[in-house]
Design a protein around this nucleic acid. Structure first.
Lengths: 213, 213
DNA sequence: TCAAAAGTGTTAGGCATACACCCATGT
DNA sequence: ACATGGGTGTATGCCTAACACTTTTGA
């Protein structure tokens, strides 16, 4: 049987756009190079694949990731020759707020750091095929936002439409039209106003919404 | 390490629409029930995951499948308790012409048979979660046709536009508008006429096309 | 002359973009 | 007053579905 690992592409949302969490490898293969965090599937600990991904990220980030989605599985004889004659990796994507995660080094990782996705997608020095995996994760995430199939559990329970739009724009890396955005939400009945709840700053107060169940 | 298998959801195109290839299981678990064909990953034989899927189908169908695409990976502690304490399956989808494959029983399968996808998708007696996997395969395949990202290598090297449209319609299970279909092909420059090549039946001859490289 | 399939044009509607404009509040 | 973000309306263009119509062959 092959050597089975789980890798997680953690995308982080920040003011400046999408970032990806990378760690610097300590051991071969690709020692010293940057890679997605991951870990070995433990059949004694993990109930299923999703649970394995959650456990691996728990250990690395001491934070239970709210939104995991399987991306792809890669495997071949030559993937990880230093450790096994045949290696298989199930790759997940997670989505978090950058300021809710403090990158701290774990075992077998010299350090964890956020990197802008544009930079990571054009960095040929990443370990394994992780550059391609990051590109895949970013693409899929942006497709989801385009289709407005929002990762429930990731968006806050209450928000103004302006906040929701800003969230989508930061993921997409481009501006959206306010009118079209709101019409789409309304037509598809994706959000519902919370009666009486308003949120005001130094300007006109905004209606607070929640996701339609 | 877990027990690793590869399952293949072979979709077959026939006059009457999409079909899926199912086999009747001989051994536990789910002995006697119908399931997707598959096999164990052999790290001594398979170079990578795609090669494993091709080998497994070679053994079952004595036919090298032209178009394989990974769908998803499922795994848990309880998936295949009769054979292993932890089982993982990488699921692929293939696309073939029904009349090019003669279903013949292989080892550990009492028989192989084509079943219409509509029927399979509502059959609660299929083994494992294979009903869901079939639904996923059908959905993804139809999405590809909708987007006109045709599986090159599956469509014949030369065809008339009528033939191509009929192919898409059989996959989708619904009729398409001739004019819209052709305009889309033309606008996106997906096909190219083969000079001088015409195909005639008992009616007006049609221009023969090939896929734009 | 007719049936059948190829191939073309025309119209109407839905959806997205762009942009203009009013509204309510704190400073 | 005015800057700021909330909220709404309108015009335009693109894509698509629907359908009508002509063309070319064999029977």
């Amino acid at each position: 049987m092959p050597f089975v690992r789980v890798e997680v592409c953690v995308l982080g949302l920040s003011e400046s756009g999408l970032q990806v969490l990378l760690g610097q490898r300590e051991a071969a293969p690709f020692a010293g190079q940057w890679a997605l965090p991951g870990g070995v599937l433990r059949i004694d600990l993990d109930e299923d694949l999703d649970a394995a991904a959650r456990r691996v990220m728990d250990e690395r980030l001491s934070l239970t990731l709210p939104f995991l989605r399987q991306l792809v599985t890669v495997g071949s004889r030559t993937r990880d020759l230093d450790r096994a004659p045949w290696a298989l990796s199930v790759v997940y994507r997670a989505l978090v707020w950058v300021d809710q995660v403090q990158p701290l080094a774990g075992k077998r990782m010299r350090g964890l750091a956020w990197r802008p996705v544009e930079q990571a997608q054009s960095d040929a020095t990443l370990a394994f095929d992780h550059r391609d995996l990051i590109a895949l994760a970013v693409q899929q995430t942006r497709d989801e936002v385009d289709a407005l199939t929002l990762p429930s559990g990731f968006v806050p329970s209450a928000f103004t439409l302006g906040e929701l739009q800003a969230l989508c724009e930061r993921i997409l890396g481009r501006a959206l039209d306010k009118s079209s955005f709101r019409r789409k939400l309304h037509d598809r009945a994706l959000v519902r106003p919370i009666e009486g709840a308003m949120k005001g700053g130094a300007n006109r107060p905004a209606q607070v919404f929640e996701l339609q169940r």
